[in-house]
C-alpha cells in the first residue's frame, strides 16, 4: 500500500496537479483580452508589469496593504494559516529525506520542532477561520458547505501528518492516510477554488496591470494597496 500511494499514485497526483495548474495559468492569461477587460495589456506592458508586481508584493507581505492593515485579526489568521500550509510540507525534514531517497535531491529543511509549531498554529488558525465564518453575519451569509469542505481538505494532511509523525497510534495507517490526504489536496488544487494558490497571483497581477496602466499608473500615480 505504502509503495502504491508513494509510487504510481504519487506520480499520477503530481502529473495531474502540475498539468492542471499549468492549464489554469495558461487559460487565465490567454483569456485576458485588452478590449473586453478594457486594459491595454500589450500596449503598455512595462507599466503593466510594474503594477502587477506591486499589487502582488504588497498583498503577499503581512500588513503590506491597506486591506490587511484594516483587518489585523484576519490578517494574522491568514498568514499563520498560509505560512504553515506552504512552508511545513516543503521544508519538512521527513519530506526531504523522501525526496533525496527517490529523486536524489533535497531542499533546505526546518527542524521538527518548528514544523510542529507551524502545524499546530496552522490548525488553530483554521479553527478560528471556521469560527469566524460562524460568528460574523457578513461572512456567514457568504459561507457554503463547499467552503468547509475545502478547509477540511487543506487541513486533513496536517492533522494526519501530525498524528503519524508523533506515533500516537497505528503509525502505518496514519501515514498512508496522511499521504492520501496530501494527494487529495494536490489534486483538488486545479479543480477547485484551491486553484487560488496560483490564480491569486494571476488575478492580483491582472488588477495590478489594470491600475498600473489604466487607472492611474500611467499618470505616475501609485495605487496605495
Amino acid at each position: 500500500m505504502y509503495e502504491f500511494v508513494t509510487g504510481p499514485l504519487a506520480w499520477l497526483t503530481f502529473i495531474v496537479f502540475f498539468l492542471g495548474v499549468v492549464y489554469r495559468i495558461v487559460w487565465y492569461f490567454r483569456g485576458l483580452h485588452w478590449q473586453m477587460d478594457r486594459v491595454a495589456y500589450n500596449a503598455h506592458l512595462k507599466y503593466g508589469i510594474k503594477g502587477a508586481i506591486r499589487s502582488i508584493f504588497l498583498w503577499l507581505v503581512p500588513f503590506g496593504s491597506v486591506g490587511w492593515r484594516s483587518k489585523p485579526f484576519m490578517t494574522i489568521l491568514f498568514f499563520v494559516f498560509h505560512i504553515g500550509l506552504v512552508v511545513t510540507p516543503i521544508f519538512l525534514q521527513a519530506h526531504n529525506i523522501l525526496l533525496r531517497e527517490r529523486w536524489g535531491f533535497s531542499l533546505w529543511t526546518i527542524s521538527d520542532a518548528t514544523a510542529d509549531t507551524l502545524t499546530i498554529l496552522m490548525i488553530v488558525a483554521a479553527l478560528f477561520l471556521v469560527l469566524r465564518r460562524i460568528a460574523y453575519p457578513e461572512i456567514r451569509i457568504l459561507t457554503t458547505a463547499y467552503d468547509y469542505l475545502l478547509l477540511a481538505i487543506s487541513v486533513a494532511p496536517f492533522i494526519t501528518g501530525f498524528i503519524a509523525a508523533h506515533h500516537y497510534s497505528n503509525y502505518e495507517f496514519w501515514l498512508i492516510l496522511h499521504i492520501i490526504c496530501g494527494e487529495i489536496m494536490l489534486v483538488a488544487i486545479p479543480f477547485t477554488k484551491l486553484s487560488h494558490s496560483v490564480l491569486f497571483f494571476c488575478s492580483r497581477a491582472q488588477l495590478g496591470m489594470d491600475f498600473g496602466i489604466k487607472r492611474g499608473g500611467m499618470k505616475g500615480t501609485k495605487f496605495s494597496w
Binding site: 487559460w27 487565465y28 492569461f29 490567454r30 483569456g31 485576458l32 483580452h33 473586453m36 477587460d37 486591506g67 484594516s70 483587518k71 484576519m74 491568514f78 469566524r132 465564518r133 460574523y136 457578513e138 461572512i139 457568504l142 459561507t143 457554503t144 467552503d147 477554488k193 486553484s195 487560488h196 490564480l199 491569486f200 494571476c202 488575478s203 491582472q206
Partner: peptide
Amino acid sequence: TLRSRLRTWLEICAHCGMCADACFLY
C-alpha cells in the same frame, strides 16, 4: 464575453468577507 478574468473572480472568491466594510452601502 465572460472571459477568464471575470470567471476567475466569480470562482475563486474565498468568501472571506473582507470586502464587507469596504462598501459604503453595507
